[in-house]
Structures are given as structure tokens and as C-alpha cells.
Amino acid sequence: MAQIPDKTTIAETFQNAIPYAREVGMTIELLEDGLAEMRMPYDARLVGDPETGVMHGGAVLALMDSCCGLAVIAHPDVPGLTATLGLRTDHLRKAVPGQAIVVRAECYLVTRSVAFVRATAWDDDRTRPVALSTGTFTVGGQA
């Protein structure tokens, strides 16, 4: 984190200033060049199936989108902010009720106009992903 203090400051300020992220308690766990990890605690308000207590796929999607965007901002070739163009999420299994979701996103390619990102979500079991995402984001100019 030490090698990119400016990005870190931008990203953390940005994340703290996002009302939705603050509301659901998203935190930045890791931030390196083009790499971000974010965490969202289990929250009964985010449940999608009241019978099982499993969090809604949409709540996971929102964490995926935030973390992917953060990985893009943290990439050294990306000037300023970004906006999501497209995001596909595969839901591999139910997240275990009571456990936090952690997403790790990697911005693996930046062209003049587009940033490409892939991300994985887990609960406490880091060997079995809950969801996978691939996304495209804007680079430069007004989103």
C-alpha cells in the first residue's frame, strides 16, 4: 500500500464518501496497483431468502461492483475516476448466513478507453467461491 499513497487516499476517501457503501458497512481490506479487496459484514437487512437467511444475490453484486471499480481506480494507468460499463456475475453457491462476504478484484488490462476486471467473492471458506464476476469500466473522460 505504501507505494501508491495517492491512490490509497483517493480510494479510501472515495469509499468513505459513498453513502451506499457506508450504509452496508463495506470496508477496504487491501489496495495495491490494480488490485482491491473489500469486505461486507453479514446483515439481516440484506437477506434475500427469509427462510434460510441467505443474503440476496444483489447485495453481493453491489459489493462486486464497488470492489471492481476500486481496483480500476487503483490501477496506475487509470487517471481519475471510472464508471461501470458492464458486469456479469455468476452465482456459484449460497453464501453461509452469518458470515461476511469478501471480494478480491483484479484490474488485469487497461487500454486507452477500457479497463477489464475480474473478481471473486467468498464467505469464510476461501477454497470455495460464492460468486465470480467479470466487468468492463470506462477509462478517462467523463463517464
Binding site: Y20, H56, L61, L81
Partner: peptide
Amino acid sequence: DDKIIGNPMLPAIHGGVTGSFLEI
């Protein structure tokens, strides 16, 4: 509602909230 904002500077609805809305 103010809590669904994802970019306070524009301001704009959070992309994740938009995605969740579509999914629901």
C-alpha cells in the same frame, strides 16, 4: 433515498443498487 447513492459528486445511484434493482 440518499443511502442508494454511489457517487456523491455527480451525484449518481450506486451501480450495485441499480444491478440489485434489476435483479429483484
